[in-house]
């Protein structure tokens, strides 16, 4: 479904800040895979998601969705296939626009923007019902500016937006990291429900090893711009946090002490 072939990306090439972020990355996702991604800081997790989303061009390699080469498509062209939720709750919504208007924008992802009405009355009613399923009481505040909502509420709306127009691929970039633990758990459960209900192929970055094991059918661990561990199915379900830590220690020796804090 998604194929990443031998992708390289170096930031600030030729300067003292040169950083090889993706170093010959290969990854193939099957239809319906829900993959959790773990790895220390600078392992290339977010870089991988940004490469797929097309935030900037990659240096080398190919990215395909459903066999179609999207390597040279711009970010907004790829949006047709991809739904995204970011770490920063501010990033996924337009703060000065209403909840309904934000959803209407997302509803038209991948379609040409014409001079038709930006949001119809019928649509509004549908969005109300949809937002009601979040159980956050937001259905009575549909025209409120999204900027007035809390981080958790914004992430929940962003999740709806990312999946409203069913994407071929859903990218969740540590989307609960900026939330308090209780809200984070709620948003994560909601993500899991949406992914399952729609059978979405999903890549989810998380810093929480327990979540990485609990959710999804496949887990990958990244280190220095490559995938160093890929496990799925029952083998994955049987994992313990200690297994992952041991695995990580094995490949990264020296760096482990630095990363332990971040991973635990």
């Amino acid at each position: 479904m998604l194929e990443i072939k031998n992708v390289y990306k170096t930031f600030n090439a030729g300067t003292v800040n040169q950083k090889v972020a993706l170093n010959g990355l290969d990854l193939t996702l099957e239809d319906g895979d829900f993959v959790t991604v773990i790895g220390g800081n600078g392992a290339g997790k977010s870089t991988m998601l940004n490469a797929i989303a097309g935030v900037w061009p990659i240096d080398m390699g190919k990215i395909l969705i459903d066999g179609k080469d999207i390597t040279r498509l711009s970010e907004h062209q790829r949006a047709k296939y991809i739904g995204r939720v970011f770490q920063d709750p501010m990033m996924g919504t337009a703060a000065t626009m209403g909840i309904d208007e934000n959803l209407a924008l997302a509803r038209r992802r991948g379609q040409p923007r014409t001079l038709r009405q930006g949001i119809s009355a019928k649509e509004r009613e549908g969005y109300r019902e949809l937002v009601k399923t979040l159980d956050l009481g937001l259905e009575d505040r549909m025209t409120s500016k999204v900027g007035l909502l809390s981080g958790g509420q914004r992430q929940a709306i962003t999740l709806l937006m990312a999946t409203l127009q069913q994407p071929r691929l859903l990218l969740l970039d540590e989307h609960t990291a900026a939330l308090d633990p209780k809200t984070a758990a709620k948003v994560l459960a909601l993500s899991d429900k949406i992914v399952h209900d729609n059978h979405l192929t999903t890549l989810m970055i998380t810093h929480n090893m327990k979540d990485a094991i609990k959710y999804g059918n496949r887990l990958i661990m990244m280190y220095e711009g490559r995938i160093i561990y890929d496990v799925r199915g029952e083998e994955k379900a049987a994992l313990h946090v200690s297994d992952l830590l041991a695995r990580f220690e094995q490949v990264s020796d020296g760096d482990f002490a630095n990363d332990r804090m971040l991973l635990s």
Binding site: H76, A79, T93, A94
Partner: peptide
């Protein structure tokens, strides 16, 4: 950022 992510 959001606009591009929504295909704008």
């Amino acid at each position: 950022n959001m606009a591009r992510a929504q295909g704008i």
